[in-house]
Amino acid sequence: MNCSLRFCGSVTMALAMGAGVCAAAQAADPESGPASPAELARPDDTLAGSDKLLLTGGVSQLEGAAGGGLTPWAVIGGYGTRDQIGANAFLTRVGVQDYHLDGAGALIGFLDRIELSIARQRFDTEDVGAALGLGRGYSFTQTIIGLKVKLAGDAVLEQDRWLPQVSVGAQFKRNDRGDLLRAIGAKDDHGVDFYVSATKLYLSQSVLANLTLRFTRANQIGLLGFGGDRNDSYRPQLEGSVAWLLSRKLAIGAEYRMKPDNLGIAAEDDWFDAFIAWAPSKHVSLTLAYADLGNIVIKDRQRGLYASLQVGF
């Protein structure tokens, strides 16, 4: 995958941050728990763990949260259970006809309750940049800090209850191209998306469903800034994912992400994808998708391959 030094730097930093937290957490957990009623039968008290079931932490979505490829899910990322801390890092590339997008990031899941994520995105305009007088390969870049908190439910274990796992989250986004964004009609170079997600695994059907409601002012998820001449207020956007589990290691599915259309000079469409996710182990997963991103700035029908590699523990 195409990975600039800058991207790798941010991943390494985030990973180091995660490892530091885990080391600190372990250090703060001396073996001084209450005496066990069954001396032989004690769970492993190590906090850095990976006892969540395979693929039930989702994969890293485009903006760094655990979810599908395009949309966050209510699951907390990483393989940590309610007694553990999990973490992973990802590299994603989306290549469509006239553009490509590189993303990298990492997340930490605390006690299957709170998820912190960071992602860096670089949107390369290739020849379109030259056509617009920006220069060939002109790139928009942004950084996204994500926070997600599980409120209720358990997507996997509560098979006899209808309640899905429900989480709320926020994605704090800052774009580096403020001057140009204002020139194309965006109101801000930074913004916050808020979302609520409901995710449920229907084990009897081997199907996972997710529904996310996002409130956002972002143009093309923030790569083209926030707010615009046509609309500058928060609008609710619906996102959905359905996945069919083919085996413990393999799932296929489809996603939809509704998007606002705030900029007069750059019409924006909703996004779709069809994906396959493969997790040969808890340490690595690979997601491939065919994505339809619609119109982006001056180019219509942007379709192509989405590839994402995730590593973690």
């Binding site: 009623p37 039968a41 006892d51 079931l53 007694d83």
Partner: peptide, 15 residues
């Protein structure tokens, strides 16, 4: 009742 079992242990048995 007499065992100390956490979610990791439960999931381990499932695996």
């Amino acid at each position: 009742a007499k065992l100390v079992i956490n979610q990791g242990g439960f999931n381990a048995l499932v695996e």
